[in-house]
């Protein structure tokens, strides 16, 4: 297993993001960062994990606003105008963050992380799969949006680990997509509340009440 190609990908997307913070570049920096975190998990590394979490997390609000802007509900109107203004302010924070010396130091350090043996990686994968099972059982039992958020994370981590190992992850990708739809609705609900639109937020909340139990029961 080699990490250098993925690090090069991160370097490229960071350059694109620094050049204007397009929605795609923000998304790709976060996705590549998460894939690299999965690699570190497979190698049982502790170092650099917090740095990747910091990078991915710091772009989270910007990504949330981009996701909301892509939803049909964000048609021209006050909510869309609010999202655009919020994005503009958040983009300034993100631009500063991407200039932080920690970002380049992280990329440099990641580029030299040694290979992970298949044996060690499979041991780590077994741990991730055990956590995924627990997350699935919790979601089934609780049927709450919070448990779906946790399930989504567990699915994503396991999926990226399988990807590194060259194993089939299509079923998890589908599951991640479905659970992700509910999480996006929850994001929309939060943003509508933040934007001062409680009636619209309640509509989304009611839709979630129908969707969450079905997704939580999904095998």
């Amino acid at each position: 297993m080699r990490v250098d190609e993925r690090v090069e990908e991160l370097r490229r997307w960071l350059a694109v993001a620094r050049d204007g913070l397009s929605s795609e570049s923000v998304h790709e920096v976060r996705v590549t960062g998460r894939r690299l975190r999965a690699f570190l998990t497979l190698g049982a590394h502790h170092v650099l994990v917090d740095d990747l979490r910091w990078l991915v997390g710091s772009l989270g609000r910007l990504r949330d606003l981009d996701v909301a802007l892509e939803l049909p509900v964000a048609a021209p109107g006050p909510f869309q105008a609010w999202l655009v203004a919020e994005r503009s302010a958040e983009a300034e924070n993100a631009a500063r963050l991407l200039q932080h010396p920690r970002v380049d130091a992280l990329v440099m350090a990641l580029g030299r992380v040694p290979r992970v043996s298949k044996r060690r990686a499979h041991r780590a994968l077994a741990r991730l799969e055990a956590k995924l099972t627990v997350a699935q059982e919790t979601a089934r039992r609780d049927a709450t949006i919070d448990s779906l958020h946790e399930l989504r994370k567990a699915v994503r981590r396991t999926r990226y680990a399988l990807e590194w190992l060259g194993e089939d992850e299509a079923a998890l990708q589908r599951k991640q997509g479905l659970v992700g739809e509910a999480c996006d609705l929850n994001l929309l609900e939060r943003l509508l509340l933040e934007a001062g639109q409680p009636a619209a937020a309640r509509c989304v909340e009611r839709a979630l009440e129908l969707v969450v139990p079905a997704l939580a029961a999904m095998r």
């Binding site: 917090d50 740095d51 920690r102 380049d104 030299r112």
Partner: peptide, 23 residues
């Protein structure tokens, strides 16, 4: 630098907080 990254890794059992890479 890799030798510092790997030395920091060996400290992980003593860490209650977080790691941070810095140039």
């Amino acid at each position: 630098k890799l030798r510092a990254v790997q030395t920091a890794e060996l400290l992980h059992t003593l860490v209650d907080g977080s790691f941070e890479v810095t140039p």
